[in-house]
Design a protein around this nucleic acid. Structure first.
Lengths: 155, 155
DNA sequence: CATAATGGTCACGTCGCGGTAGTTTCATCG
DNA sequence: CGATGAAACTACCGCGACGTGACCATTATG
């Protein structure tokens, strides 16, 4: 019985998140998202990505799909990593132009939008988690393990 | 007395908008924003940008500053050009991931944000116009012509 | 031990510019 | 009215970021 306690392989991760394997590899080598369970130690070794890694990767993919530059995403994640993890279901990610990153929730969002100048990028993290969980189920290899996603998503 | 009825030169435009001349040139060549008063006809000829051109350029700059890819900006402007022009002061520009572009106003914005999935890029157009007008005054060459901005901003 | 997976490396292509030299035009001056 | 210099645009080269594909090296695993 295969749960995801030991994480996800590179290929699998790319498939679930919806990016190319080369992208995942490139991001790992350029230090954007490293597999937190097991990093590569040379040719032939295997990377193992945690559920939280997948969550980050999915956020990144959403931001890229929204048209953000990878460079900006790198900046964002310098700040985001601390804030992410709590309230992933309810929080909104608000990116204000240069380097500022705010995580608001609910109506707070509207105040922020009304107050500030420039462009805001708004991402509902709840949707990201839903997408991710759905993809994990969808790309499950064989027999339906009913608790696999739940156990994996225990951050 | 120099009004801006005959538009702005390339250098001046770049200065006012706050971008490099190379960027402006590149954007003109690659068909993102062409000077609508007079396009270049060969080496030595002059481009003349209208006030509306500056407005578009300023919007582009804001989007780039927010971390958007130039490629996405191109997609946006394919749709935006029709909608831009009315209600520049009150409208909000909402960019939803791939190719969808919506111009909402006021509280409509909140509904849109609550409804949809993914990332939204929100830009208040009023702020852009204010910035632009201020920059035009700031970079005025010599004597203060009080009505120059007003006459120019008559779209 | 055999072999399928996986990471490493290199070459290649595109995008978005920056730098610089060349060319044309415009304004001005003699 | 022709020369002259500044201003503006074009052409061309190059660079870094972001991948992609192919192929090789190595390892996990049955």
């Amino acid at each position: 019985m295969e749960t995801y306690e030991d994480g996800f392989s590179g290929r699998k991760t790319a498939e679930i998140v919806g990016i190319s394997y080369r992208q995942l590899d490139y991001w790992a080598r350029t230090n954007l998202v490293r597999p937190s369970l097991a990093d590569a130690q040379g040719s032939g070794t295997r990377r193992r990505y945690s559920y939280r890694d997948l969550l980050e990767l999915k956020v990144i993919k959403q931001l890229l799909d929204a048209g953000l530059k990878l460079e900006s995403v790198r900046d964002v994640f310098a700040y985001l990593r601390e804030s992410l993890g709590e309230d992933v279901t309810t929080a909104n990610l608000v990116i204000n132009g240069r380097n500022s990153v705010v995580v608001a929730s609910g109506d707070e969002l509207i105040d922020v939008l009304n107050a500030g100048q420039g462009v805001f990028n708004v991402l509902a993290l709840g949707g990201v988690k839903q997408d991710l969980d759905a993809s994990i189920v969808e790309f499950r290899p064989a027999g339906p393990e009913l608790d696999s996603v739940e156990s994996a998503s225990a951050i």
